[in-house]
């Protein structure tokens, strides 16, 4: 019981909040004594998920990004959600090097980083409604 905790936050999809989001998840995780590497992995994965919201979910406007994190039995579950444009083909979006954003310098490796740095990732999306990315990692 003692080792259970959660938080919920929401913030506007402004790029300055990418750093805010990963600092918040890092401070939450600190109380469970993760290794430096685990902490960096989680920060990086959350940074990627939030960047996707900023760049892709709300391409022409500022919307709201929702993060919930829960730790139970040493398993961290982070959900990053938006109410943006949604993804029509999730499999294609998760393909390394695939990007819809040719004009900027995005490498198309956001999901690849999340997959590499977390234990599990699931993506749920409805076009016009939004996207939810659920990631888990054992930090026991």
């Amino acid at each position: 019981m003692q080792n259970e905790n959660y938080f919920k936050i929401s913030f506007p999809s402004r790029s300055v909040n990418e750093a805010f989001a990963r600092m918040t998840i890092a401070s939450f995780c600190m109380q469970f004594d993760p290794t430096i590497e685990q902490l960096n992995d989680i920060k990086t994965a959350v940074s990627e998920a939030v960047t996707n919201c900023v760049v892709h979910a709300y391409p022409d406007n500022v919307g709201t990004v929702y993060i919930t994190a829960k730790l139970k039995n040493n398993i961290l579950t982070v959900t990053v959600k938006d109410k943006g444009v949604g993804i029509s083909d999730i499999q294609q979006a998760m393909q390394p090097m695939f990007t819809t954003d040719a004009k900027t310098e995005r490498a198309g490796l956001g999901f690849a980083v999340m997959q590499t740095f977390m234990d599990k990732i699931k993506v749920y999306s409805t076009v016009g409604k939004g996207t939810r990315v659920v990631m888990t990692k054992n930090i026991g």
């Binding site: 990963r22 960096n40 920060k43 990086t44 940074s47 990627e48 960047t51 900027t104 310098e105 995005r106 490498a107 490796l109 956001g110 690849a112 980083v113």
Partner: peptide, 13 residues
């Protein structure tokens, strides 16, 4: 002190 996949884009470009 921190880098995500944006660093890849920065280096490749």
């Amino acid at each position: 002190t921190f880098m995500d996949s944006s660093g890849i884009g920065l280096v490749l470009a």
